[in-house]
Simulated scan of single mutants.
Amino acid sequence: MFKIKKKTDKPKPTVLYNIIEDYSEFDAPGNVTACAMTEKEDVARHAKVLAESCGVPLDTMTLLLSQGGIYVYPQEGGVLTKGLFACRVDQTGAIPKQTYVLDLMQFAEAEQVARSPSISLEDAAAEVFIRTLPDELTTKLQQKNLGLDYRTLDRAVAKGGDIKYIDFRKDWSPHFKRLCIMPDGRLVETGGLEEFAQLHGITSAQAKTLVEQGGTLEVNGEILACQIVNGQPAVARFTARNYAKAKELVSAKGLHIMDALSEVAYNDPVMMGSLVRKELSGGR
């Protein structure tokens, strides 16, 4: 006798974006990834992710996503280390909601623009942000739904209708998978800091410092190296043997450890094969 299995109504995981336009290879500060969504916004989920990612209090982020506005980052130890977070909301719905972060240089420029009594800091921030974007992306933003041909989109994406919001992001998050070259030549894909930390057996704090600042970290005799390229982390892990070779190059040629590791990688057929595959995959 056969049993009929009933379908279980498992809740579907929340998807934050279903359209990704990658401009991370563009020169800073315009090296953003435009993350858009055609489905109805889950404000609570959206606010939680952006609050954690952008370092904005959750209550403040929820309010900003609902009403729009800016959040100027507070000083740390009397020093301003970040610019501002902005959320642009068109109450008519004609233009999708947009969120972005200005770095210190952009923030300073926005403050200069806002000295005119006719322009607010929020409008000045938008003007400065748009000005620094790649021309191609700027052109797309002037078109409805980024100028996408909905006939060519995945049906599930297209049926959501018009784009509801666009987050311009640069961060290392679960939404942006990164490829790490491992000592055995594997390209291992990781997303958020927790996943990256677990893969390498390091703490979240160590992972955060490494991918934000670049550099090296010794892990059980091996070495983890991260180079920041256009604001994005490129990561590789080297065996103890290759690490020793790199240190020999540092002593013999006076190279920086990162340059020495790069030379070792290019002379290692296993790692070189991974580098080629990484280039072919677009580094993602």
Results as ranks from 00 to 15, higher is better:
Gln142Ala: 05
Thr139Ser: 12
Gly161Arg: 00
Ile163Tyr: 06
Lys159Gly: 05
Gln206Thr: 01
Arg186Leu: 13
Ile202Pro: 08
Gly147Trp: 04
Thr203Arg: 02
Asp149Leu: 02
Gly191Arg: 10
Ser204Asn: 09
Lys164Phe: 01
Lys170Thr: 03
Gly192Ala: 01
Ser173Leu: 10
Thr203Ile: 13
Glu194His: 10
Asp167Trp: 04
Pro174His: 13
Glu194Trp: 08
Gln206Ala: 13
Thr152Tyr: 14
Asp149Trp: 07
Thr203Leu: 06
Leu187Val: 05
Lys177Pro: 00
Phe176His: 15
Thr209Ala: 15
Arg155Met: 05
Ala205Phe: 07
Val211Lys: 08
Asp171Leu: 05
Ile163Ser: 07
Tyr165Trp: 02
Gly161Pro: 03
Leu199Thr: 06
Ala197Glu: 03
Lys170Leu: 09
Thr138Ala: 11
Pro183Tyr: 11
Asp162Pro: 00
Cys180Phe: 15
Glu195Ile: 02
Gln206Phe: 04
Pro134Tyr: 04
Asp184Gly: 03
Leu153Phe: 10
Ile181Met: 05
Leu133Arg: 02
Thr132Gln: 12
Met182Gly: 01
Arg169Asp: 12
Tyr150Glu: 13
Thr138His: 08
Lys170Cys: 03
Lys208Leu: 15
Thr152Cys: 10
Ser173Ile: 04
Arg169Met: 15
Lys208Met: 09
Ala158Asp: 05
Leu210Ser: 08
His200Asp: 05
Thr152Arg: 14
Asp149Gly: 05
Gly185His: 06
Pro174Tyr: 09
Val157Asp: 02
Trp172Ala: 11
Ser173Gln: 03
Glu136Arg: 06
Leu141Tyr: 02
Leu187Pro: 12
Thr190Cys: 12
Leu193Gly: 07
Asp171Glu: 15
Ala158Trp: 00
Lys159His: 07
Arg151Ile: 03
Thr139Lys: 09
Thr138Gly: 10
Pro174Ser: 14
Ala158Gln: 04
Ile166Ser: 00
Leu199Val: 02
Asp167Arg: 08
Phe168Arg: 00
Ser173Cys: 04
Leu146Ala: 11
Asn145Asp: 15
Tyr150Phe: 10
Asp171Asn: 13
Arg178Tyr: 11
Leu193Trp: 08
Lys140Asp: 13
Leu133Phe: 01
His200Glu: 01
Gly191Leu: 08
Leu148Gly: 07
Pro174Thr: 11
Thr152His: 12
Lys140Trp: 05
Ala207Trp: 05
Glu189Gly: 11
Ile202Leu: 04
Gly192Val: 10
Thr138Gln: 11
Gly201Arg: 05
Asp154His: 13
Lys140Cys: 15
Leu193Val: 00
Arg151Asn: 14
Asp171Tyr: 13
Ala156Asp: 13
Gly161Glu: 04
Asp154Trp: 08
Phe176Lys: 15
Ala207Gly: 01
Thr138Lys: 14
Ala205Glu: 15
Met182Asn: 09
Asp184Ser: 09
Gln142Phe: 03
Ile166Lys: 00
Gln142Arg: 09
Gly160Cys: 07
Gly185Arg: 04
Gly160Ser: 01
Trp172Thr: 02
Lys208Phe: 11
Gly185Val: 07
Ser204Arg: 15
Leu146Pro: 08
Lys144Asp: 13
Leu146Gln: 09
Arg131Asn: 13
Asn145Cys: 09
Met182Tyr: 09
Cys180Arg: 12
Ile163Gly: 05
Phe176Tyr: 14
Arg151Tyr: 10
Arg169Cys: 14
Leu153Cys: 11
Val211Asn: 07
Asp162Val: 00
Gln198Leu: 15
Leu210Arg: 02
Gly160Arg: 01
Leu179Trp: 03
Tyr165Ala: 00
Asp154Ile: 14
Gly201Asn: 01
Ala207Met: 10
Thr132Tyr: 10
Gln142Leu: 12
Leu179Val: 04
